[in-house]
Amino acid sequence: MKELEMAIDLRKEGKLKESNKILINLANKYPDNSIINYQCAWSFDVMGSEKEAVPYYEKAIAIGLSDDDLQGAFLGLGSTYRTLGQYEKSREVFEKGLAKFTDDKAMKIFYAMTLYNLNEYSKAMEILLINLAQTSSDENIKIYKNAIEFYSNKLDEVW
């Protein structure tokens, strides 16, 4: 769809308002198109209008998306709920997303932020430390990878 491509190109060029306007019009014209709803949600998100993004993310997920887009929609909606202070909803979205996309490290990091907001500091730190140990290219972290992973869920223990 030419208009959708144009809106995505405008967003890439930093013309966020123009892109958003086209996507809102498309979402009104094609309310059952999951990709348009997802792109519209994304356009609100990048403009800092998270509250407006929520219904579009929810609708896109409910209608159904390809795995790549669904993965992005779960991350976007979970993160949006977190920034709006709706931490339990954020947790639910991330847990659904991580059940389907178990290896998505970015989603795990955003989930850890939500856990932090829910005062689940130990679990948040565990997720962050494991991901740091598994993904870091820093030589010193690589040397201590096993120790970091071992202690990741034992931060309150004293030997």
Score class of each variant (00 low, 15 high):
85 G>D: 04
155 L>K: 01
10 L>T: 11
89 K>N: 15
62 A>C: 04
10 L>G: 03
28 N>L: 10
3 E>K: 12
98 L>P: 01
34 S>R: 09
153 N>Q: 13
92 E>D: 14
130 I>R: 13
72 G>A: 15
136 S>M: 05
36 I>C: 02
20 N>V: 00
16 L>S: 10
75 L>F: 03
80 T>S: 15
105 K>R: 12
92 E>R: 00
109 I>P: 06
51 K>Q: 08
58 E>I: 08
71 Q>H: 09
9 D>H: 09
82 R>M: 08
24 I>T: 10
136 S>L: 02
54 V>Y: 03
72 G>P: 00
35 I>R: 15
85 G>H: 08
85 G>T: 09
80 T>I: 00
123 K>V: 09
96 K>Q: 15
64 G>P: 01
30 Y>V: 04
133 A>E: 05
117 N>K: 07
101 F>S: 01
45 D>T: 10
35 I>L: 14
25 N>F: 11
101 F>R: 05
131 N>Y: 00
102 T>N: 14
46 V>E: 13
100 K>T: 03
104 D>Q: 11
50 E>S: 15
157 E>T: 08
136 S>D: 07
138 D>V: 06
62 A>P: 00
76 G>F: 01
40 C>W: 06
56 Y>H: 15
94 F>C: 04
52 E>N: 11
26 L>R: 07
90 S>M: 07
66 S>R: 06
89 K>W: 02
101 F>W: 06
46 V>D: 15
17 K>F: 11
132 L>T: 08
39 Q>H: 11
38 Y>H: 11
114 T>W: 01
7 A>Q: 00
25 N>G: 03
9 D>I: 11
104 D>R: 06
1 M>C: 13
93 V>A: 03
92 E>Y: 04
41 A>D: 10
62 A>D: 10
101 F>L: 07
111 Y>F: 15
116 Y>M: 08
147 A>P: 01
111 Y>A: 04
37 N>C: 12
44 F>K: 02
107 M>W: 06
99 A>K: 14
81 Y>I: 00
71 Q>T: 03
45 D>E: 15
126 E>H: 09
6 M>F: 10
95 E>L: 09
73 A>N: 02
132 L>V: 10
73 A>F: 06
68 D>M: 05
12 K>S: 08
21 K>Q: 13
146 N>I: 06
105 K>L: 03
123 K>G: 00
52 E>K: 10
146 N>S: 13
1 M>R: 12
75 L>G: 12
122 S>W: 11
110 F>C: 06
89 K>I: 04
57 Y>H: 04
